[in-house]
């Protein structure tokens, strides 16, 4: 069984440095609930350096969300902000950290190539 959550965090961890997170400094704890079980991921951010662990520790920002929904977010099939507005994602602590972190969630899978065309302003110069 593929686990989009693990894939997402593994990729983040392996990259080691994520330019989109350079402004975020602090810890974000993800508590993914599945019935009575809670799966924890702790992300430490500093100057774009990313460290991921499975620790259950107090963080600057705690994000509580159902595991199934997080699977969809990690796969780009659900949008984190909309889920937050629905009340399906609970955020405690520094909201700005989460606003920055959401930058690295993938977009929805698309059928066509990412780039719409090859044109660019500098092309003819």
């Amino acid at each position: 069984m593929t686990d989009a959550t693990a894939e997402f965090f593994d990729a983040l961890s392996q990259s080691g440095h994520e330019p989109l997170l350079e402004k975020a400094k602090g810890t974000v704890s993800f508590e993914l609930t599945n019935g009575t079980r809670v799966e924890c991921w702790l992300v430490t951010l500093e100057n774009g350096d990313v460290n991921v662990s499975r620790k259950n520790a107090k963080a600057d920002c705690t994000v509580r969300v159902n595991k199934d929904l997080f699977e969809a977010i990690a796969a780009g099939q659900a949008n984190a902000m909309a889920a937050f507005l629905r009340g399906e994602v609970a955020i405690d602590g520094d909201m700005e950290l989460m606003a920055l972190f959401q930058r690295v969630f993938p977009g929805p899978p698309t059928k066509r190539p990412r780039r719409q065309n090859g044109g660019s302003v500098g092309r003819s110069s």
């Binding site: 780039r115 719409q116 065309n117 090859g118 044109g119 660019s120 302003v121 092309r123 003819s124």
Partner: peptide, 13 residues
């Protein structure tokens, strides 16, 4: 974005 995503017609605009 201006160069890579906004030029929908490939004419530099």
């Amino acid at each position: 974005w201006i160069d890579e995503y906004a030029d929908l017609m490939g004419n530099g605009y």
